Simulated assay, not measured.
Amino acid sequence: MSSIPLADLDAFVAIARVKSFRAAAKLRGVSASTLSEAMRRLEARLDLRLFNRTTRSVTLTDAGERLLERLAPALSEVEAAIDGVNSLRDRPVGRLRLNVPGIVARFVLPPIVTPFLKAYPGITLEVASNDALVDVLAAGFDAGIRYEEALHQDMIAVPIGPRRQRFVVAAAPSYLAEHGVPEHPRDLMQHRCILHRFASGRVLTWLFERGEERVSITPPACLISESNEVEQHAAVAGLGIVCTFEEFLAPGLASGALQVVMPDWIQTFSGPFLYYPSRTLMPVPLRAFVDFVKANPWVE
């Protein structure tokens, strides 16, 4: 049997981990058809079917399970060996894969990414934006960024971005003039509200705190969306009341198109964290990124 390209084996592991050609392609920055062709080559070389494919799912065959069991640790050893050599360079090279929520991709990472990549031009940074909770290692990422309540205890967490953020409740002046201004979270049950739904299907619960009083509600919705842009546009148009990160609403608040309501109930919480597994042989690009974040003022 002729030698099998390492890239095809690496592609197999990527698909097997996320059980999706499309998701693996997005992670690797290639087309799904490119991965399909790589798997056709690999299965032809082995004369074995590795995946069961349907329109709804991708699962491993017994042969695929056995290959993944032996191959994943071997590829990890290859990566560790390359990282070991890489550590001898003055400037590290390689690929750094991060999984981050949308708020981080839009507001936290931009001022960090450019100076980091200028400082380390040999590193290629891949950023996947995903609001769902992800097993970063199983999905093939080096690290993730999430908020405190979503961090796993066995991970190392490093502060990144603003250390305090806020959820604010806001509406267009035209909506408030027609429907009145809520003064207590329970008043929201009588209003039209714009809710956010995560990719998992869970609808965001609105949490409020003032002194010792805590209120958790899911108000009646006139719109439920997975897009913050859709929610902001609807709020500015006077459709209803929205509750989200202050950063998303900042332009509307600054222009007067939106008005904060119940300011004494604003929810404040800790900012995001960069997190990664505790392991001795950290990939060199990840080590460079962690050191860069720690040494610069974005953690303040």
Rank of each mutant, 00 (worst) to 15 (best):
F248I: 10
L48S: 10
I82L: 15
R97M: 08
E69N: 11
A254P: 02
E69T: 14
F198D: 11
G140Y: 05
G180V: 00
F51D: 00
R56A: 08
I4T: 15
E226L: 06
P182Q: 05
F248Q: 03
I217W: 02
A139R: 03
V230Y: 04
V113N: 04
V242N: 00
I217K: 04
L96T: 06
A237Q: 13
L50C: 13
P101V: 04
L195M: 11
E149M: 05
A199D: 14
R202S: 06
A16K: 00
R202H: 07
M39E: 03
I123V: 15
V18K: 03
S20H: 05
G144S: 08
L68I: 04
P162G: 08
A128M: 14
V181Q: 09
R28W: 07
C243K: 10
L27F: 03
I241T: 00
I266L: 12
Q190D: 12
G102N: 13
D291A: 15
R186G: 03
P5M: 09
F21V: 02
P110S: 13
D131G: 08
G122F: 00
D47G: 14
T34L: 06
N130F: 09
N130G: 09
N130Q: 13
D264L: 12
C243R: 12
E126W: 06
I160E: 06
H233I: 04
C193W: 05
E37R: 15
R40D: 04
E79A: 13
A234M: 06
E209Y: 09
P101Q: 07
L117C: 08
M1W: 11
N86M: 13
R166G: 00
R197G: 12
E126S: 13
E149N: 01
A128T: 14
L35I: 09
F12L: 10
R70A: 14
W206K: 00
G211H: 01
D154Q: 13
F167Y: 14
M189F: 06
M189R: 11
A157L: 07
S200L: 05
A14S: 09
P110K: 15
R40L: 06
P159K: 06
R202T: 11
L204Q: 12
D291I: 02
S270E: 14
F141K: 03
L50H: 08
L67H: 00
P110W: 13
L48W: 01
F141S: 02
A157S: 15
D47W: 09
E247F: 11
L195R: 04
A221Q: 02
T34K: 05
A72Y: 04
L9T: 07
V13W: 01
A72N: 02
E213V: 13
L239A: 08
M39A: 02
K294T: 12
S255C: 07
V299D: 03
Q232V: 12
E213G: 11
S31T: 11
E43P: 01
E212M: 07
R28G: 03
A171D: 05
P263N: 10
T114V: 14
G256T: 05
F51Y: 09
A257W: 01
P162A: 14
F167S: 11
L223E: 04
D142V: 06
P173M: 06
E69K: 11
L27R: 14
L27P: 00
D10E: 15
V260A: 12
D131E: 12
R279T: 13
P277M: 06
A74R: 09
D10Q: 14
R163P: 05
A172I: 03
M189P: 00
